[in-house]
């Protein structure tokens, strides 16, 4: 003989999982996208933070650019913390502007005249022991004041700012979704209390403690919260997967891949548990407060 469900199903218990599912979907989407963006930004930042780019302005005289580039490479190589310095071939530099200018213009210029593309020197740094702040810039200034050193700091700062904004937005969405779940459970539990008023009174009369009665509602809330949480989180995960796959097919090389690792997926997988936990706690609080008003 099973104990049976004292409360049985009611209209509120049929509707609530769907509302929780919507909330969990929104929360799951915000969480997954936030984690994906954070991961992608982290990978992207790690990729460029060990590099610097030196930009040597175009020189009109043939061979001048090459000799300046060699001087730069020689100067940089002497700086402690620099692993390597490589002159980027003109063909590769031209490729960088190819998406905007077209292959013909970027490669050979108009009527055979080469575009005034600067010479780039790619520097790889020892990330464990990087050069002192400003050491590379000082060495370049000694060669020529018009040589630019790009340590990607501006880009990294902007990226960090953007990731922080995404995380804050996701956090706000998560809080809103959690509040939505709380309010949904409060309303559904109050409705269930009204619907099952007679059952509650019977349980009281035959000697049930408040905790026993509250547990009946908690079981119901647990089931509905978990069901809704699973449905919403699964749908969010599916959408994130689709977005990730779509990103793979359109990657330009500039954008990092937007996908989740095992740890991030595990975080998303905790959403149904979080929804169930919220549901159980809220249902208990609502029921215990209501029962305290009874004799």
């Amino acid at each position: 003989m099973s104990a049976g469900s004292v409360l049985g199903r009611d209209a509120a218990s049929r509707t609530m999982p769907w509302i929780v599912a919507v909330m969990a979907f929104i929360a799951g989407l915000a969480l997954a996208l936030s984690l994906a963006v954070e991961g992608a930004a982290g990978r992207f930042a790690a990729g460029i933070s060990g590099n610097m780019t030196i930009e040597i302005p175009h020189a009109e005289l043939a061979g001048a650019a090459e000799s300046r580039a060699n001087a730069v490479v020689a100067a940089v190589a002497r700086i402690p913390g620099v692993v390597s310095a490589t002159i980027v071939p003109r063909a590769e530099t031209a490729k960088l502007v190819e998406p905007w200018l077209g292959a013909d213009l970027a490669g050979s210029g108009i009527a055979g005249t080469a575009l005034p593309i600067p010479t780039l020197v790619d520097i790889r740094l020892d990330t464990g022991n990087p050069p002192a702040d400003g050491a590379v810039a000082a060495a370049m200034a000694a060669i020529s004041p018009d040589i630019r050193v790009d340590d990607h700091r501006i880009w990294l700062d902007q990226l960090l700012g953007w990731v922080t904004a995404v995380r804050l937005t996701a956090g706000a969405v998560l809080i809103c979704a959690a509040i939505g779940i709380v309010l949904t459970i409060v309303l559904a539990t109050r409705a269930a209390l009204a619907i099952h008023r007679d059952v509650i009174e019977i349980l009281h009369i035959i000697g049930a403690q408040d905790g026993y009665i509250a547990r009946q509602f908690q079981f119901q809330a647990l089931r509905m919260g978990f069901q809704g949480g699973v449905a919403g989180a699964a749908l969010a995960a599916l959408l994130v997967l689709i977005i990730g796959l779509a990103g793979l097919s359109m990657r330009s090389g500039l954008l990092p891949a937007l996908n989740l690792g095992f740890r991030e997926w595990m975080v998303v997988a905790t959403l149904p548990l979080a929804a169930a936990l919220i549901a159980v706690v809220v249902a208990r609080v609502v029921v215990m407060r209501a029962l305290a008003r009874m004799m």
Binding site: M1, S2, G4, V6, G8, V199, L203, I206, G207, A208
Partner: peptide, 16 residues
């Protein structure tokens, strides 16, 4: 209690 069988209804006080 309508969601419980006759046996479950009768057993409820002892179970509680």
């Amino acid at each position: 209690i309508p969601s419980l069988t006759a046996l479950q209804n009768v057993a409820l006080p002892l179970r509680i």
